[in-house]
Amino acid sequence: MIHSSPSRFFSYLNSRVCALVVAPVVMLAAMSAAAHPGHDGAGHGGFLAGLLHPMLGVDHLLAMLAIGLWSVRQQGRLRRFVPGLMLAGMWGGAALAWNGLPLPGVETGIALSVLLAGVLVATLTRLPGMLGGSLVAAFMLFHGHAHGSELPAGASLLTYLIGFSLATVAIAVVGKGLGTLLQRCETRWVRALGATIAAIGGAFALS
């Protein structure tokens, strides 16, 4: 009894900390989703527009955050190179848009990327490196095409590219940091966060 009481106390404390970490993210995601897709105010300058576009679009934000969060539980190179794979997919999609090449079902693809990334997080899924990397790049291809298509008139393509590239890496790093923190918690907190993201992605797909 003497030994079990401190154990229960620290377990309770850890649970409270995990709740404090997850709850604000869930609330922010749910509140932001009400304004889907939410790209207003992305600015008119190339760099600023590129930087803010992924952050002000809740669909982009949640997909990238979820991928970063999911990557923490992956093995080897996939875990390390997820931010680079996200950039590669973004650049590929943007290149298609800037060369006038359509990508069918862009909005649906973006919504499904949010849904599926949330499912991967909620189910604690681990994938082989090649499959997981291909999936990440495919997800981001749709996001990159959307970013490329929304280049503001008269804006510098290069500064816009730099802006959304920096935003992509920053969101991925935040997601990985959150995932690392939540690894110390019970898996139910990670599952709850993933389920919330998946539900929002499903709502996007049906809207």
Rank of each mutant, 00 (worst) to 15 (best):
F81I: 14
V121D: 01
A137E: 03
G118C: 14
G129F: 07
A35Q: 15
F81R: 12
L62I: 08
P6Q: 05
L56G: 00
L178E: 10
L65A: 14
V114W: 08
E150M: 11
L65C: 02
R191Y: 06
A122Y: 02
Q75V: 12
Y12S: 12
A195C: 09
R80M: 09
L151S: 04
V114G: 15
F204E: 13
L13S: 03
G93I: 04
G154V: 04
Q183Y: 04
L135T: 09
R191D: 03
A172P: 00
G89D: 03
G45Y: 12
A19P: 00
F142N: 03
G163W: 13
L28T: 04
T159Y: 09
M27L: 15
W70P: 10
G50N: 05
L112E: 01
I110L: 10
G57H: 07
A153P: 01
V174G: 07
G154C: 06
G132K: 01
Y160T: 02
V136A: 09
S165I: 03
R16T: 02
R188D: 01
A23H: 01
L115S: 03
A117N: 02
I67T: 14
H36N: 06
G133S: 02
L206H: 07
H145T: 03
A34I: 00
A198G: 14
G45L: 10
H143R: 09
P102G: 10
T123Q: 10
H53Y: 10
L151T: 00
L103T: 05
S113H: 02
F164N: 02
G179C: 06
I171C: 11
I171Q: 11
L158A: 13
T108W: 12
L206F: 13
A33G: 14
G133N: 06
C18K: 09
G100Y: 05
I197W: 02
L166D: 02
A35W: 15
T196P: 09
W98T: 00
G92K: 01
H44G: 11
F10A: 15
G57W: 09
L182V: 00
M130P: 02
S156V: 03
M90S: 10
P104W: 09
M1D: 10
L181I: 08
A205K: 08
A138P: 00
P37C: 07
A94V: 07
F10E: 14
I2S: 11
L181G: 11
G89Y: 02
A33R: 02
G175W: 03
A192G: 13
I200A: 00
T180Y: 09
I197M: 06
T159K: 01
H53I: 09
Q183S: 09
T123I: 05
G144S: 03
A49R: 05
P54W: 04
A203R: 14
T108N: 11
V106D: 06
C185F: 06
L127T: 01
W98F: 10
I2N: 08
M55W: 13
H53S: 15
G177F: 07
V58I: 15
D40N: 08
N14S: 15
M130I: 07
A97N: 08
W70G: 00
V58R: 06
P128T: 07
R77D: 12
H147Y: 01
L85I: 01
V114L: 12
H143C: 10
H44M: 15
L62G: 05
A198F: 08
G89N: 11
G84L: 11
V106M: 11
G133V: 06
R188T: 00
L62V: 13
S5R: 13
Q74L: 13
F142W: 14
G202T: 09
P128F: 11
I2Y: 04
L166G: 05
G84H: 03
S5G: 01
